[in-house]
Design a protein around this nucleic acid. Structure first.
Lengths: 336, 336
DNA sequence: TTGTATGCGTTATCAT
DNA sequence: ATGATAACGCATACAA
């Protein structure tokens, strides 16, 4: 590896001069700056990251903790995040966290990271507190934790759930079901309570046997849907905790020979790209993942710049996206 | 941040003793090792990555260059890669490379990376040569470059294309089309030439107006399919360069009111998870992404251990996965 | 078994 | 405008 000393030797100056020249600091004559730049180019010199980090105590690397990327939700959150970090001059290190393979704090605390974004944290998690204890800047994205002072970016999930309830009520559904996310995530919980509230306001009952808490996965949505539809009195509408669950639901419905938006109503949540594919065209709630990602990134960079100062909490607005998987209950239409 | 010096002070030993004790090196009495471990725990000590890297000249970070993760192909390649690297004691840094935002070599050469995996390299790319020139260990995964000596893991794409051609011939198709990948990728090229060869062996013509080179994306597959089917004599079968293109094709077909596997045959390639969803059930060729990922990771780690030694080239075998999107041409069945 | 001393490549302070 | 020098936190060769 070629170092700044090599460049210094070739350019006939001191190492410290090289460092300043290449960083564009003032107090260097144009002549020597040019010499140094030429020398650096000849040697294909690239400053050592480790050396710089050791000296500056900063790495310009952000850790993003998320579940596995094969769940199509995460790429859509993580990709704009990466892009925003890049604009801000940071790199992103993806750190997986799953229930099978839970993340230990040490992986975040070896000084590799200038900051951390948590996207998968469960309600009782100690991770945020541990990060706070070690004074590692972090931001909660798409998740909240009760009783913690921390920068947070979330959708108004409760409102989102309510919006869906209103839609189903307006359509005339009475036998509704819900495949919510896990109960130990704020997203799963809040979308569920909002949905519940919205339904009661419209005097619609949500029977316990028609409510499920499941992982945010295709297969969970598929399986739960099959089971819900096997009941003596199957629901005429299913609210899914996110689009990925809804994909499972749509596929399950299709495998039964039914058509979403005709025989049954399926509502998703998040509005990820795939939900607009012709074969799905899922009616859903926009989760503004891009806005979430970008705000989280900016919040974190600001927190790194000024570690003290009151935590900020950004709430994004949900928005109903009407597509092709909602309709009045079939019975009602037949009667008409 | 707490350093090994802090631990040393608290444990009443020297810094070097701490370093050795915590790494489990021999030549430390059990008594002091215990003291040191306790001290380290009390202080929540985690060794600094930058310090270690600077000293050892190794970072245990691997860079994986790929396209954007919102293309569902990449998570399925990248996720098992990450898992394998983790088993091998390495971390993975995702480095995006797109035509809009091409990767500069310096991002790979700042010493942050012990090695690199290239998954998106185009045929004329200089990147591999530049990496070789700087002696940065690297492996080509899912891509090859003509005339370069480098560790490589690829599928036998040409054979894969041939297999598809045989299938279409056996089914009796005569008007076939292909939406191949980009012509400047080995994957796009080899699957195409294999397909061509297979067809000529069976005396089936592949008309130029029925062959397209497109990006490996949903929207490209969608658009190309619409256009191909708008011809005066539309094809009865479309070979897609990968499953993502095939998703676009299936959705396009659906939007025209046709059913894949009934009105038209759609063949994919790679066998990513989604291709087995009920709504798709795409007949495809297994690309063994997991095998590719794991072999690439292992090859790279071996290369890092011994930088010299002949490059290895691993070729994985394609395998036809018969599902629901293939059928004899409709005309033939109507005649029967 | 333990300690001392040095170097890794950078940034940053202090002279000149 | 430039150079000498001291950290940064670790690993490691050498001494004791």
């Amino acid at each position: 590896m070629t170092t700044s000393h090599d460049v210094a030797k070739l350019a006939g100056v001191s190492q410290s001069t090289v460092s300043r020249a290449l960083r564009g600091l003032p107090g260097i004559s144009e002549k020597t700056r040019l010499q140094i730049q030429r020398a650096a180019e000849m040697l294909a010199y690239v400053p050592s990251d480790a050396g710089r980090s050791l000296s500056t105590k900063r790495t310009r690397v952000i850790g993003v903790v998320s579940a596995e990327l094969t769940n199509p939700f995460f790429p859509e959150l993580v990709e704009p995040m990466r892009a925003e970090f890049e604009r801000l001059g940071y790199r992103m290190l993806l750190i997986p966290d799953s229930s099978e393979n839970p993340l230990e704090i040490d992986r975040l605390a070896d000084g590799t990271l200038d900051g951390v974004i948590l996207t998968t944290v469960v309600l009782g998690s100690q991770l945020p507190h541990r990060l706070a204890a070690r004074k590692i800047p972090f931001v909660l994205a798409n998740r909240e934790i009760d009783g913690i002072q921390a920068d947070t970016v979330v959708l108004d999930n409760q409102l989102g759930g309510k919006i869906v309830a209103s839609l189903l009520a307006d359509l005339g559904h009475e036998k509704v079901a819900a495949i919510l996310g896990p109960a130990d995530t704020s997203v799963g919980r809040d979308r569920g309570t909002g949905f519940q509230q919205g339904l009661s306001e419209r005097r619609i009952a949500l029977l316990p046997e028609r409510v499920r808490n499941e992982p945010f996965t295709y297969s969970a949505g598929h399986k739960a849907t099959i089971e819900l539809l096997a009941a003596a009195e199957p629901p005429t509408a299913i609210f899914c905790g996110n689009d990925v669950i809804a994909f499972g639901a749509c596929n399950a419905v299709a495998s039964l020979g039914l058509i979403p938006g005709h025989d049954i109503t399926i509502i998703g949540f998040d509005n990820i790209e795939m939900s607009d594919w012709d074969l799905f065209r899922i009616t859903t709630v926009n989760g503004d993942l891009k806005g979430m990602a970008e705000n989280a990134a900016r919040l974190l960079i600001r927190r790194i710049a000024s570690p003290d100062g009151a935590p900020e909490r950004i709430t994004l607005e949900p928005e109903l996206i009407l597509r092709a998987t909602h309709a009045p209950p079939l019975g009602m239409r037949l009667r008409a």
